[in-house]
Design a binder for these strands. Structure first.
Lengths: 203, 203, 203, 203
DNA sequence: CATGAATGAGAGTTCATTCAT
DNA sequence: GATGAATGAACTCTCATTCAT
């Protein structure tokens, strides 16, 4: 043992490198302009090399997807066990933010990009999307059971909360905040989230 | 009025036709798959003809952009003069929605797409973005002067409001609502907006 | 008129040029090594140009096929109306030879090459193959009715005759006559046919 | 006998395995689609391994060639010693057939394929071709000395005989018998040979 | 002995763009 | 004003081949 394991690890590292680079390019220049060639160039390998690690472009796309959701769930698991569901909800928002801004390329791919993928993969994609959405819905329900958000439809409220956080994130990621001075944008994003949280608190 | 004017008018009409067709195609098959060729085919002219009216693809994109913002402002102008600024704010939200779902291809281009354009054009783009954002900020300020949203930063609040509405719209447009039954999605979008409005009301 | 017609003619000529060149390359270097690129190079155009005249490689292949059979039938139509069916049979052999050696690339494609084509096209191909084979069978039958080839199955005999002529042609075209001095090969091919004819005569 | 010999034997066995596998693939999927990779996969070795036993694809092809001719001669050696040269000639035809249909991939490579090989190898190829052709010529000469085929050029006649048998075989192998019902084709091939034999008999 | 990793060259194909007519 | 013809550059993907290990 040793050799086989090292090889396996190296292979994983290379796949990782390709995946990450691809995701970065998606974010930088957009998905359409990200080609196998440009990925290869950026990692300074030949295009053919990529095919040693991924069968075709579709499989690469799929792997990025999986990887992205995987990491997304890892972030979610850091949600602390708190007694107050409202506090938990706000923590969830912060975790969501953290994931998004730590991994903007992944976020983009998961929640913004029009994914050109095979149906099988899209389906799995949506299962994961639904699963993460359930976490939110469950939490909102908890809040309601604790007396908050009375007389509000759980689904609609959950969706609205998600939409708000997603809206803040995606305006930032897709660079629609140029009407604010650059120095202020980051802070603004967090302030927006805080303000939304404080509003929710008061409902 | 003579020949020159007629020519000018005809030229405008042709540009119009191209622009509209391009926008339709963006919506139908997506931006990446809309090529000069496909536009040309749809209007039953040769690809070369398009170059008589637009210098290159970039300029065409830019023109669509302008057109999109132009229409956006037209929608805004339908905002009725109401005494209650809060009611006006909510109306603004509905108008925003109406524009977005009447013209999803335009909305996508304006607020979601990673703009594949030259810097000059992007600047003008942002001037228009800022201008429309000002409408919102002014309105929020009015609300505050009328006693609402006390102790809240106008900029941050405006941004948060925009983000929420944009979030709802873009989750729909970019098809991230598959966790809800298709039949419910449209309604959900409007319910979300309503819920957000009612929450704002109570702040 | 005039312009449109000239254009049409020019288009036909270009298609012709591509077709002929492709067929030549098939013969020279084999079908597998004939690429759109090599064809383009030989006619000194860019590869993209070929796609102006043929949708894809398959369509090009198909067109060559059609063209080849078309010409094949043209040769057949030069078969003179003779009273003696045996003489006609021998003439047919000569015409077949003439076609093959006038158009070796076409012959190769039609009767030797393993055609990598869509099924629709292959079917049509075989209909034409069958049609030309019928000409032979009919003629053999005539001969039999005139008293020749008694007690022989028409089908089998026809097939055998075809096989012989095809064998002579294909050994030549596929260069399997290197055991004979080059200077003699051409003559040998014709002598073989003559000898076969004379043998048939005596049956 | 020691280590060196065992190594040599093992090397031969491996070469054998590669050769046989390649030939199988030629037959199964055709020559163009048989790549070093597909061969490697089938024998469950890496592509690089093949290069330990053959310098390059060309050399591998050459080896298959040699092997094919070798086997061809083995078939020829089963030709029984008969007194009647005419009977021997007919037996030769049957042996040729047997070889062809037992080993269609080999036959194809030897007598149909446009050989993608270096000149040195092609030369040797033709020496073997000539050698086998001599067997036929000698036999035809014997027949003539026994009173058959009077007043016929030995070379031409031999060539014509070969061409006929080759024609029958290659129409079958290259699938140009689709005008006959599939069930009949095999029989037809043999009937054709028989008819040719019987005609020769009567000359 | 065997191979995993890597690649240059080349396959078919599409697209934005130009230009002579 | 309109376009047919042409192309360079880019795309995804495969293959024979090399080389360090």
């Amino acid at each position: 043992m040793g050799i086989a394991e090292r090889r396996e690890r190296e292979k994983q590292e290379m796949q990782d490198l390709i995946l990450t680079t691809a995701a970065e390019l998606f974010l930088e220049v957009g998905m359409e302009k990200t080609s196998i060639r440009t990925i290869a160039e950026k990692i300074e390998y030949s295009p053919a090399t990529i095919y040693l690690y991924f069968k075709d472009k579709n499989e690469l796309l799929y792997a990025i997807h999986q990887r992205a959701f995987q990491r997304f769930f890892q972030y979610f698991q850091t949600l602390p066990q708190l007694d107050d569901p409202m506090e938990k909800l706000q923590q969830l928002g912060h975790i969501y933010f953290k994931f998004a801004f730590d991994n903007p390329a992944f976020y983009d791919l998961m929640f913004i990009l029009k994914a050109p993928m095979d149906s099988d993969q899209t389906e799995e994609h949506w299962e994961m999307g639904a699963r993460s959405h359930d976490v939110l819905t469950d939490l909102v329900l908890e809040c309601q059971q604790a007396g908050h958000f009375q007389n509000k439809d759980t689904q609609v409220l959950s969706h609205m909360i998600w939409a708000t956080v997603h809206g803040i994130v995606s305006l930032k990621i897709r660079e629609r905040m140029k009407m604010y001075p650059e120095a202020l944008r980051d802070q603004m994003v967090y302030d927006s989230l805080e303000m939304f949280n404080s509003i929710l608190e008061s409902v």
